[in-house]
């Protein structure tokens, strides 16, 4: 098994605390349900954002009667404002061994994790962090996350299988932020249904190492599956490498297609380069992040 590289989590956390000044999770792209907060809810609320007028109905809160309109028309008219709520964020980090196939990729995953944490915290969201490891999952206490004591030990070799999202209790109407490289076999459909179920909304960040798309395999190589430990001796001629690249692209094309189908922003974030630039380059077009403006 590949051990998780030692990272300076406080430093990463600090950098991500600054990063969320530039971009944030896509809280503004829809209405939320939740406790009173800073974000528009799906119901009526006490925010300053005007939504609509309607006739007064018995039982309405008299504080929202538009007295100016009553003066003009003599009719009780209700002035409706948007509800401001605090969204719920279910953050799930895929900590399978493939995420640590290279130190850069693992760092990028951790950066995205802390970016999401900070973005959620700054938005006042109700944050719940989970971590999947092989076929297991665990909830990461926020204190552990903020105390940087959450990096798990490498799991024993496991079969390469999808993360067990179905076992994670995603909250109703929450924003499900999933950080995963999506490198596992199987149809993505069930996962999208899980992510978008319970009137939730999802955003996917898929960190990747460039070497995964264009691996430096040439001639005879012995490939070790980083998760299962399975070894495979393979002669890699140029044509096979080309077919591999095609299969790699098809794999993510399928994910992209389904993401569009389920209206889930999916941003593939390269492990190389500055995260902010990557988020601008990949996250914004995919609507996985948004700017403050």
């Amino acid at each position: 098994m590949i051990p998780f590289p030692d990272l300076d989590l406080p430093a990463i956390h600090a950098r991500m605390r600054g990063a969320v000044e530039a971009v944030r999770l896509p809280f503004g792209s829809r209405s939320w349900r939740g406790q009173t907060g800073n974000w528009l809810g799906v119901g009526l609320g006490a925010s300053i954002d005007f939504q609509d007028h309607r006739p007064y109905l018995p039982g309405d809160d008299p504080r929202y009667i538009n007295w100016l309109a009553y003066a003009r028309t003599g009719q009780f008219t209700m002035k409706l404002y948007r509800e401001e709520v605090s969204p719920s964020v279910d953050l799930v980090l895929d900590a399978s061994a493939s995420m640590a196939i290279s130190p850069a990729k693992w760092m990028r995953a951790v950066e995205l994790f802390y970016f999401s944490v900070e973005s959620a915290l700054q938005a006042g969201a109700s944050l719940r962090c989970s971590l999947t490891l092989g076929g297991d999952w665990m909830i990461l206490p926020l204190a552990a996350v903020l105390g940087h004591r959450w990096v798990p030990d490498p799991a024993a070799p496991t079969l390469t299988e999808p993360p067990p999202l179905e076992r994670i209790p995603l909250r109703h109407g929450s924003l499900r932020v999933w950080i995963s490289d999506l490198l596992f076999p199987g149809a993505p459909d069930p996962l999208f249904r899980l992510l978008t179920g319970k009137q939730g909304r999802a955003a996917l960040f898929a960190p990747f190492a460039p070497a995964e798309e264009a691996p430096p395999w040439s001639g005879n190589v012995e490939l070790i599956d980083c998760e299962s430990g399975h070894r495979r001796r393979q002669r890699v001629p140029p044509d096979l490498l080309e077919r591999y690249r095609l299969a790699y692209r098809r794999h993510f094309d399928l994910w992209q297609d389904l993401a569009r189908k389920y209206d889930v922003p999916l941003a593939r974030i390269s492990a190389e380069g500055d995260l902010i630039r990557c988020l601008y380059r990949e996250g914004l077009p995919a609507r996985a992040v948004e700017t403050w403006t």
């Binding site: 590949i2 061994a97 493939s98 196939i101 390469t160 490289d181 490198l183 596992f184 076999p185 995964e212 691996p215 430096p216 395999w217 005879n220 190589v221 012995e222 490939l223 070790i224 599956d225 980083c226 998760e227 399975h230 495979r232 001796r233 393979q234 591999y244 299969a247 790699y248 794999h251």
Partner: peptide
């Protein structure tokens, strides 16, 4: 032969 860790063996 050189040994390489791979995360995409399932694609092969």
């Amino acid at each position: 032969v050189r040994t390489r860790y791979a995360s995409t063996l399932f694609l092969l």
